[in-house]
């Protein structure tokens, strides 16, 4: 209990500073979902679907798995591949194919929604929150409320 509180407070503090450091070093806010638009843009060179994109977002997201790998090697018991989703195993389909389908559809909703809303959790909650942008904070709250209601439906109704 106590150790997780330390992790949460320390982690929150460090993430907050990282957002600030990103502004200070790169000169713009951090963000994750724009990177996907960068990839689509490169795959679809002939039509410009998204207007001007910040290519640095792509490199930012490219760094993410390196951090995940570093944490696994340093603090977890060895690196291994897994397809386990913890408590979600109870609510997602048992068959691998259907499970992949649900996750893929969930991903489509995330990608479509993030572009439609102009950002994801990083851009709206962390960066928008740091800028005290009311629009971003409202969006972040909506993300959370919708996700919460859907989770309740998944775990208690379906």
């Amino acid at each position: 209990m106590e150790s997780y509180m330390i992790t949460a407070w320390l982690g929150g503090l460090l993430i907050g500073w990282l957002v600030v450091l990103h502004f200070l070093m790169i000169g713009r806010g951090a963000g994750c979902s724009t990177a996907y638009a960068c990839v689509v843009d490169v795959l679809h060179k002939e039509i410009n679907l998204f207007g001007t994109l910040d290519p640095m977002k792509f490199f930012f997201v490219l760094g993410l798995p390196l951090g995940g790998l570093a944490h696994t090697l340093l603090f977890q018991q060895g690196w291994s591949l897994s397809f386990d989703m913890g408590v979600y195993e109870q609510v997602l389909p048992v068959s691998i194919g259907l499970k992949v389908l649900v996750l893929f559809i969930g991903g489509i909703l995330l990608g479509f929604g993030a572009r439609m809303a102009g950002g994801c959790t990083t851009g709206h909650a962390l960066v928008g929150g740091a800028l005290l942008s009311w629009t971003s904070m409202l969006t972040a709250v909506l993300f959370f409320v919708v996700a919460m209601i859907t989770t309740w439906i998944m775990f208690f109704i379906v």
Partner: peptide, 12 residues
């Protein structure tokens, strides 16, 4: 967009 995103967040 938030409704789509939130649903995706919960599913995945």
């Amino acid at each position: 967009g938030s409704v789509f995103f939130g649903t995706g967040w919960a599913l995945t």
